Simulated assay, not measured.
Amino acid sequence: MSIRMWDGKPHTFKSVWLGNLAEFEKAINGYMEWMNGDIGLYNSLSLKIDLTLPNYFGRERRIKIQDQMKVIRSFLIDVERMMNDSSYQEYDDETGKAIPYRLSVQALDVPLTNDAKNYNALFKELERNLDLLNKFRDDNASD
């Protein structure tokens, strides 16, 4: 996933925000499909973000962004719970004993003020969550 950073210009925010959310949604849903098919961690989880946003900064846009973030947080919590509660386990190469997998996603607790620093920090947290899931996939992909 290629996260775009926001340059702080109000007229570019909407395209960066919605582009990043669309990319995140596509990447995370692809990951969930991989879990179903490759490692047999069957799930019906699918992230669906309402990819609309009012044109101008204001109360409506802020509420919409907060709603979108609630959907993402809730979804990531569900993924974390599903993986940590599953019977899927890694094995220690030296001892051969099972090690329960423990996934811990970022909280996404970035204040959503209208400046590029905070939004870019949020984009980086979304990317870190995907990197964590991708590392799990890379470590456990079938040959």
Rank of each mutant, 00 (worst) to 15 (best):
P100M: 05
L51S: 00
Y56H: 13
Q106I: 10
T52D: 07
M82Y: 03
I63Q: 12
M69T: 04
F57I: 12
Y88P: 10
M82I: 13
D50P: 06
A98Q: 14
V105P: 01
L103G: 11
R81F: 00
R62I: 09
L47I: 05
N55M: 13
L53M: 07
D50S: 07
D78Q: 14
K64R: 14
T52S: 15
A107N: 15
K64V: 05
R73T: 09
M82G: 14
K48T: 11
V71S: 11
I63C: 09
L76C: 12
I49F: 11
D85H: 06
I77T: 14
R59F: 10
Y56A: 15
I63A: 06
N55P: 05
A107K: 13
E94Y: 04
S104Q: 11
R59V: 12
K97Y: 09
D67M: 12
R102N: 06
V79Q: 00
T95R: 00
T95E: 00
R102K: 11
Y101K: 03
V110F: 00
R59G: 03
Q66Y: 15
S87T: 15
R62M: 08
Y56T: 10
V71L: 08
R73K: 11
R73N: 09
V71G: 08
M69I: 06
I99F: 04
S86N: 05
M69C: 08
V110H: 09
E80V: 04
K64D: 02
I49P: 08
Q68A: 01
L47G: 04
I65G: 00
D78K: 15
Y56I: 14
L51E: 12
I99D: 01
D92T: 01
D93V: 05
M82T: 07
Y91G: 05
K70C: 05
I49E: 08
P54Y: 04
Y56L: 06
T52P: 00
L47F: 03
E90C: 07
P54S: 13
L45T: 02
E60G: 03
E80H: 07
V105T: 01
L45I: 07
L76D: 06
Q68L: 03
L45C: 07
L103P: 10
Q66K: 15
R81D: 15
L45G: 01
Y91R: 09
R62S: 13
G58E: 05
E94R: 04
P54R: 09
N55C: 14
R81K: 15
K48M: 07
L108K: 01
L47M: 09
R61M: 13
L53E: 12
G96E: 04
V105L: 10
L108I: 00
D78L: 03
N84G: 02
R73G: 00
T95A: 02
E60A: 12
L108T: 08
P100Y: 00
D85F: 14
F57W: 04
D50W: 10
Q68M: 02
R81Q: 12
M69H: 04
V110Q: 08
R102F: 15
D67I: 04
D78S: 03
E94M: 03
I63L: 12
F57L: 04
S104E: 11
V71P: 10
S74K: 14
I63Y: 14
G58D: 00
Y56N: 10
Q89R: 01
G58L: 02
Y91K: 05
D78A: 12
R73P: 05
L47K: 00
L53N: 04
I72A: 02
R59E: 15
Y88W: 02
D109M: 02
E60L: 11
E90W: 15
I63T: 12
R62T: 01
